[in-house]
Design a protein around this nucleic acid. Structure first.
Lengths: 116, 116
DNA sequence: AAAATAGTTCGACGAACGTAGAACTGTCCA
DNA sequence: TGGACAGTTCTACGTTCGTCGAACTATTTT
């Protein structure tokens, strides 16, 4: 098995995607994935939004994102790499991912400003 | 009282908006609101996505949308009119509402095609 | 073969969600 | 004044969600 199962492009459901992106922790994850090419699950544990969450919880969030069609997971030796399904999401819901990413980023920036 | 309370533009939260739009019934409601200027709650009861739902349930959904900052409710005699907060949403999360509306519409169209 | 590493699955728990009916509030009309 | 009408609030219900720890699987390293 090379890649974990996710919905086909045409089966990606809007409500499911919205639900997957309606959680601060997952939003943070997606935002991080947009910056880099690929990340392994361990890296995601260091994210601000995911800090302190148990392995099982992070795994659960990744599953929600994968089953909604937001990310793709593939094997690479003893670790798994996750990546955004950018092209697929853009094809199915043009502009949605970009808008969400811009929004998420502006909120993260605002939160950082308040902190300091 | 002229208008029911909702969050200020700068207090609109992305995760809350995403959550508000992560329900098929509410998605349908928002899609309908994008077409017309204003609608009263009764009209929303005739929507495909809201058909058969109790008054109290519809009222609940409208509250979720309002508290997330997606819609605005104002009094007009014995009925209440709801409207999209288009400008506010566009200011806070540029492109998000449009992308969601386009996506919702394409899904509704696809569903209608299958039905016939 | 054994230990270490990376992640999943399972069972559980409290909180929140979507739904509904009944009772309530406020507005208009006769 | 009394209905009729339009929505809201309250209470309740079953379901789903986010979280966790513990047990499990699979791969790599020693």
């Amino acid at each position: 098995m090379r890649e974990l199962p996710g919905p086909a492009v045409e089966d990606i459901d809007l409500a499911s995607v919205m639900h997957a992106l309606a959680d601060p922790s997952r939003l943070q994850t997606v935002s991080a994935l947009a910056d880099t090419s690929d990340l392994c699950c361990a890296d995601l544990g260091d994210l601000a939004g995911s800090q302190g969450l148990a392995k099982s919880t992070r795994s659960h969030h990744l599953r929600v994102l994968r089953e909604a069609g937001v990310i793709r997971t593939r094997y690479d030796g003893q670790r798994k790499l996750v990546a955004l399904r950018r092209e697929d999401l853009d094809a199915r819901f043009p502009g949605l991912l970009d808008a969400v990413l811009v929004g998420a980023r502006s909120e993260i920036a605002a939160a950082a400003t308040v902190d300091e």
